[in-house]
Structure formats: structure tokens, C-alpha cells
Amino acid sequence: MSIRFVKAGLLTTVQDSGRFGLADKGISSNGAMDSIAMQTANWLVSRPLTSPVIEITLAGPTVKFDQSMSFAVSGANFDLILNDSPIPANQTIHVNQGDKLQFGKCLSGLRAYLAFSGRIKLPKTLDSYSTHLMAEFGGFNGRALQDDDVIELADIQIPPRKILPNQYKPFYGGNYQIRITDSVESSEFSAEQMSQFLNQTYHVMPQSNRMGLRLQCDDPVIINKSILSSGLAQGSIQIPPSGQPVISSVDGQTIGGYPRIANVISADWPILAQLKAKDKITFAYVSIEQAMQIRKEKMGMYKQLWG
């Protein structure tokens, strides 16, 4: 019972909900960058929500099934072709032995998640199935999938067919407003610097990856203060000497030494996973309390769906 990646795609990795409790050893949390889309894909195939899935980036794989099972794709919108026919994302799809799924053009967003209705047979490393690309461990042999890699599956079920309701489908327009809140060094920035920061439009740079998102704007905030290095939380917006922000992400360093002007609120972390080169973003400030409230509402909405 296996799946062959006839073509691997640009950066196709095994990721689960993350690797926690080892940041004090220098190991970042890894895991799916868009944890909502990852959980949605698992929900569609009736797997535990934190199960490992395949994270697909910009150019997707071609996958061949050696037995009948179900799969689902969530997250970024790709043209999906099963054998010769287009199929929809965000619903359970049944396939037969020998069927071939092809990811075509990435229409919007950047990262999609492919889940199967079986258990991916890979070992856990340091308590997670996620691939740590830099340190080359976890996932599939510690690396991104390559052409003709085969992933074994066990406990394959044929789950009930589910369709993701429309209100849960994010719109990836390439032009986003991202909400931010207080971070450790926010008070080191003056009110003028903060409003300068909020009044800019930022472009996503092509160097962005799972470690961090690099942004660029015309009138960057320059801050010449040295700070204490301290632990980086996900979504920290660091301001290096150039003033061009770097948002730390799931594979990033665990400790940072640049001042953080703000952190992206947790409800908006999934959008960070979908940013691609040339996308435009602006930031809007919310208080810590508002950020907590937004998260609570969002999690409540997904709890209704996932049960």
C-alpha cells in the first residue's frame, strides 16, 4: 500500500502539527506552515487532525496510487487533474488502484496540503513526523521528496465523503492586510516609527521560505538600538539594520537579536504560509486582548467544523 511521487514538485515535504518542547535545544517547531489547511485536509479524509500530511509549494507533485483510497487537498488553489479530468480541492476524493493525481498550475496562494485516508508509515524523529530541512531529519529521510520516492501507507480506510463549506475557504488575493500586536521590543519604537511602519505597503521577497518571510518597502523604519537576544515566537516581525522586516516562521532560528516591532497575531499565521513573491501586504495593529478575542472566535468557528 503505497503512493509514488512520479514527480516530486518544487518543495514537497512531510509535515505534521509541529515539533514542540525542543526550542531550548535550538530546534524550531517545524510542521505545516498553514496549520488550518493541514487540519482541514486531515478532516476531509477523516484522519486525526494532527496527522502528517504532504506540504506542497508553488509547483506540485504528480502522484500515483497503488490501491484504492481517498485523499483531499486543501490550502493554496492548484489546478488538480485526476487521470485526465479536473477535480475540485477541499473535498474527499475516492481513487482506484493505478489512478494518477497531477498538480497543475498554482492559481492562488502558495502552499497546499495533501492528506490520504491512511497512516503514513514513517518514523517519528524527536517526537514529530515533520521534516527539518536545515538539520536534515524527520519526515521522509530528512529531506524534501524527490522524483520516484514512494511513501508507504497503512490502515487505509474509505472514509465518508466531506465537502468543505464555502465560508471556510480562504480567498488568496495576493493583497493582504495582516493584523499585528505587541512584541518584546515594540516599546523601543517611537509612535512616529510605528505609524511609519503601519503606513507602508510591503512586497514579499522571493528569498522568503519556511524559515522566514522577507519583506521590502520604500520607506523602512530604521532603528539603531541593540537589544538583548531572546526567544523568537512564531510571527515575530524583526527589524534588522536595513529596516526591511523579516517575519520569523516555523523553521526559523529559536533566538533572535534584532528588535521586534510587533508580532503577527496567531489567527493570521496561516496567511503567512500563502504569501508568495510580489504579493503585497499592509499591517493593522490590534491590542493583545483583541488578538486573543480574534483567535477565540476563529478557533470556535473551526471547532464547529472539525467537531
Binding site: T181, D182, S230, R260, N263, S266, I288
Partner: peptide, 12 residues
């Protein structure tokens, strides 16, 4: 104790 986003706290 300072906020490090709404999902983290940093003790300095």
C-alpha cells in the same frame, strides 16, 4: 514580563 505577541510571554 512582556508580551511576545498574544501567544507568548517573555520574562526579562
Amino acid at each position: 514580563i512582556v508580551n511576545n505577541g498574544e501567544m507568548a510571554l517573555t520574562i526579562i
